[in-house]
């Protein structure tokens, strides 16, 4: 019994959190955040990555994967809709940054809201016709959409076609914090801030009306609608919020990478992100964070996986779904936690 408890990471974490007093919780949160913020300084340890520069790896793929997985998790995990074109929103954000950054004087922070807004608009435009349809149609239409966005970028002159857009400006410095190519700590902290913001948003929404609506839709959409949930509206919201996070990630990605091209926004990205969500635990924020961290980091740590990255991720999807559909950390099951608390009292 005891031993199994350690294997059940979710309950272990939930217990730790629920039995803690308020100051203790604040302390846990601050220490965790502090620890993560110091990660870029641990490049010399066993964490070092042989192929790419360590702090760059922390920003992309690790940080970006976590951020995008959280966004996709709103769609797939919270409301149960399979979006296979998530890369499209990432691309829209990135191209917004690249085009506005190279043709106007707007800096990264000023482009950010524009990129988010455009991604959300794209989400609504795609969502209205397709979210009425049943799950697998949504999957295939979003799959197509992701590819279409790439094709449009590849074949249009305003996006500079296959050449892509170079010389995207870096973000302006924030006070003493300087953005540098060789040293990407500051980028990492920015991604971290965006991740925290996203987590805050999801947690807020989850415990209130929108979260209940999504949960009801995920479990039985017909019943939800018949109990008065405006299902289409909440599905569009979910889709659009996911798009917003993807777009924000894209904006930052463009001004970190300084160069973007259509080939960076293939279907593979959507699949990688989906694998992160599935591996960590569909619907569980912390699971998704851990899953994305592992799947983002490992291919850069272990060369073998790096070549066959996508193959491994495909296998992850099949194996997890068939043998451990809950992933690393199962979706929160409140009842257990409650029963435990009673037992402890």
């Amino acid at each position: 019994m005891k031993i199994r408890n350690y294997w059940n990471l979710r309950d272990f974490g939930a217990n730790l959190w629920e039995n803690a007093s308020r100051p203790k919780r604040v302390a846990i949160a601050l220490i965790s955040i502090g620890f993560v913020a110091l990660l870029p300084f641990m490049g010399a340890s066993f964490l070092a990555t042989p192929i790419a520069s360590y702090d760059a790896v922390l920003v992309y793929p690790v940080g970006m994967f976590v951020l995008m997985s959280l966004g996709l998790n709103i769609v797939v995990g919270k409301s149960g809709m399979l979006d296979l074109g998530y890369v499209a929103f990432f691309a829209i954000g990135a191209y917004t940054m690249a085009i506005l950054g190279t043709t106007t004087k707007l800096n990264t922070w000023e482009v950010m809201p524009i990129g988010i807004a455009l991604s959300m608009i794209a989400g609504v435009l795609l969502g209205i016709p397709t979210l009425r349809l049943r799950g697998d149609y949504l999957a295939i239409v979003t799959l197509g959409f992701g590819e279409i966005v790439r094709l449009v970028l590849l074949n249009s002159s305003w996006s500079k076609g296959p050449n892509g857009i170079a010389n995207v400006p870096m973000p302006p410095n924030i006070g003493p914090l300087k953005f540098e190519l060789e040293n990407q700590k500051v980028f990492f902290w920015v991604v971290m801030a965006m991740i925290l913001l996203t987590i805050w948003m999801i947690r807020r929404l989850t415990v209130r009306r929108p979260g209940r609506a999504w949960e009801a839709i995920r479990q039985d959409e017909d019943a939800a609608e018949l109990m008065g949930v405006h299902t289409l509206k909440y599905k569009i919201w979910s889709f659009t919020l996911g798009a917003a996070v993807g777009g924000a990630a894209g904006v930052l990605y463009a001004s970190k990478n300084l160069y973007i091209a259509p080939e960076m926004f293939t279907l593979n990205v959507s699949i990688l992100i989906l694998a992160c969500v599935v591996f960590g635990g569909i619907g569980n924020i912390w699971g998704v964070v851990i899953g994305a961290t592992i799947l983002g980091y490992l291919p850069d740590r272990i060369r073998f996986i790096s070549d066959a990255r996508l193959l491994v991720f495909g296998l992850v999807l099949v194996i997890v779904m068939n043998f451990r559909p809950d992933g690393l950390l199962p979706r929160k099951k409140r009842e257990k936690a409650i029963v435990k608390r009673e037992a402890n009292a």
């Binding site: 495909g314 999807l317 099949v318």
Partner: peptide
């Protein structure tokens, strides 16, 4: 099932 099918097609 959908995700599993996607996975196998990627593989």
């Amino acid at each position: 099932t959908l995700i599993s099918a996607i996975g196998i097609s990627i593989v």
